[in-house]
């Protein structure tokens, strides 16, 4: 105890309280992880095991549940990845261009135009949900993948421009000066200088956007009626409702295996880009 006091420069809580702190954090984390653990455990059980030994680990693990799950949800997974990736590409390009224009170019009405975009962050989706459905209906876009891609490409840059403008403002002006001396135009200033230097910002934006797309549920639920074009959230929702499926999908392990499979793209995303996401949130000191 005393040595610890000496080591700490300012007298923060002592060793015992540190231990209590770790236990409390671990306890809260464990509680939040219980559903996930239950999901993984159940994903390896057959129908009988699911009925009679839900709590214990059933050996041998039935890995084949994952194959039967994949057979049912593969189209949903691929659709969602496709729609999310195409949308994300559009969002990144438009946010980079918009962020550059508002951060680095001077032109009349710059600030009013910028605030006209940022103000849209304040419009809750509930006001536009119903009329947007009617708009897509009138444009004949219902039940096409465009109905899933366009809202993201059109709406994603709102926050994207906000984020990228702040990020691009932080790039040293000297870099732009010297590139202009070499005769670079706006297009090459964006692609040769801004793009490589704003990769961390684009990574943060990618995580946010992809997670939002992967989680989108209500909009695809109402706009896509053809299940072969449907996304993973709605697919899993429908499957959880059908219990008389041929592989008893709804009742036993395969359904939970499907839940685990649906989480894998997000796991991969966070392994690759999660660092940017955490740092983006913690270090920006975001507040209102």
């Amino acid at each position: 105890m005393t040595t610890d006091l000496k080591r700490s420069p300012n007298r923060r809580p002592l060793q015992m309280s540190q231990l209590g702190l770790h236990l409390l954090i671990a306890f809260l984390l464990l509680l939040s992880l219980i559903p996930t653990v239950i999901m993984i455990n159940l994903s390896f059980k057959n129908g009988l095991q699911y009925r009679w030994e839900r709590w214990s680990l059933s050996l041998p693990l039935r890995g084949s549940n994952y194959l039967s799950a994949w057979d049912v949800i593969d189209a949903y997974m691929i659709n969602t990845v496709l729609v999310a990736m195409v949308g994300l590409a559009g969002v990144l390009i438009l946010s980079l261009i918009g962020g550059y224009v508002f951060a680095r170019m001077r032109f009349p009405l710059r600030e009013p135009l910028y605030y006209a975009i940022i103000a849209l962050l304040m419009v809750p989706w509930v006001l536009s949900f119903i009329p947007a459905y009617m708009l897509y209906n009138n444009l004949g876009l219902l039940n096409t993948r465009w109905a899933l891609i366009i809202p993201n490409v059109a709406g994603g840059p709102i926050f994207g421009i906000f984020l990228m403008r702040a990020f691009i403002t932080g790039i040293p002006e000297e870099l732009y000066e010297s590139a202009r001396c070499d005769g670079a135009g706006a297009w090459s200033l964006i692609w040769r200088i801004t793009f490589p230097l704003s990769l961390p910002g684009l990574a943060t934006l990618s995580v946010l956007n992809f997670v939002a797309e992967w989680n989108s549920f209500l909009w695809p639920l109402v706009t896509i009626s053809d299940m072969s074009k449907q996304v993973i959230s709605v697919g899993l929702f429908r499957l959880s409702r059908t219990t008389n499926d041929s592989v008893d999908f709804g009742s036993g392990g395969p359904l939970f295996a499907g839940y685990v499979l649906a989480s894998i793209p997000l796991v991969i995303l966070f392994i690759v880009l999660g660092k940017f996401y955490v740092e983006g949130l913690v270090e920006s000191g975001i507040k209102m």
Binding site: G98, R106, I117, S128, I150
Partner: peptide
């Protein structure tokens, strides 16, 4: 001044075209 800045407006035009049709219009319609 607007003519000098045509490039900025040209770069912003696809963003605003999408915003007007798919983001501004629905809530106003609502």
């Amino acid at each position: 001044a607007f003519r000098r800045s045509w490039q900025a407006y040209a770069l912003l035009s696809p963003i605003f075209a999408l915003l007007i049709v798919f983001v501004y219009y629905p809530p106003i319609l609502g």
